[in-house]
Amino acid sequence: YSAHGTSFTVVTPTGEKFGFSTHLVGECNVSNLLAAIIVALRLEVPIEKIRYAVNDIQQVEHRLNMKRTPGGVTIIDDAFNSNPTGSKMALDVLKMMTGGRRIIVTPGMIELGERQEELNAKFGEYIAGAADIAIIVGHYNREAIISGIKSTDTTSLDVHAVNSFSEAQQLLATTLKPGDTILYENDLPDTFK
């Protein structure tokens, strides 16, 4: 993964190797592309047409959607919703961004029933292994996420707790530098405390 998307190589059963690039990121997207590539190869679609299609596919808004600002900041917009599998995948993408600081802005995950606290604590553990700065928005999952972060031996993670996305944006405005990457993971409205 990079700020420009994903590059990967497909190796066929006969040993042929084909390189691909796409604007999409995340294991789920690569997995889906692999299935489509396999079908296209079986149907004897020319490799250049397959490469073109893979490279031309457009990102889905708010689902691991990558953008670059004129100031050189990469934004990973995974704000549509958040679940344990998807949030870990988004953090895996964030972890691969090495051009600057890796920042996550999140209120955590909701609608997880009796496992709400446990899964948000696990989310905090993943954050500790993937980010340099964590901005936890709101109160609902704050304690669980921070306890998960603290359960790791990470001492370099800079954690900020804010009450709203507006406060998170104000904090970012004063700290962002060219090369930084921001992951927006879930976008619960500020009214959801």
Rank of each mutant, 00 (worst) to 15 (best):
I104A: 11
A40S: 14
K95D: 05
A128G: 05
V11Q: 11
H62I: 01
V60C: 02
V105G: 01
V30I: 15
T98I: 12
V39W: 02
F80G: 08
L112C: 09
V11C: 06
L94W: 02
Y126P: 02
M89P: 00
S21L: 03
G71T: 12
D92E: 15
T74C: 08
G108E: 13
R68F: 08
K95H: 10
I50W: 04
A53G: 11
G15E: 09
G113M: 11
E16Q: 15
F80N: 07
T9A: 05
S87Y: 09
A35K: 11
H139M: 13
S21N: 12
E117N: 00
G108I: 13
A79Y: 02
S21I: 04
T22Y: 00
V54K: 10
A131S: 14
V73R: 05
V60I: 14
D78E: 06
E27C: 00
R101C: 00
N32T: 14
I50G: 10
V10L: 14
F18I: 13
V60K: 09
F80V: 10
A40C: 11
I47L: 12
L94Q: 01
E48P: 01
F20C: 00
D132G: 15
T22N: 05
S87L: 06
N120A: 11
I135R: 02
K17Q: 15
I104L: 09
S82I: 06
I136R: 04
G108K: 12
V54P: 08
A35V: 09
T12I: 08
V105D: 00
T14Q: 14
H139V: 12
A90S: 04
L41I: 03
F80P: 02
C28E: 06
F123P: 05
E16T: 12
E48V: 03
V137G: 01
F20M: 00
M89G: 03
P13A: 06
R102T: 08
R115A: 14
A90Y: 00
E44V: 05
L43V: 07
P84R: 01
F123H: 15
R102Q: 07
S82T: 10
I38V: 07
D78C: 10
N120T: 10
G99V: 02
T85K: 13
A35P: 00
A35N: 07
F80L: 14
A40H: 03
L43D: 15
E61Q: 13
G72H: 13
V54M: 06
S87H: 07
P46S: 07
I57M: 10
R63W: 09
M109F: 11
Q116R: 02
R42K: 10
H23T: 08
R115S: 13
S82M: 04
E16I: 04
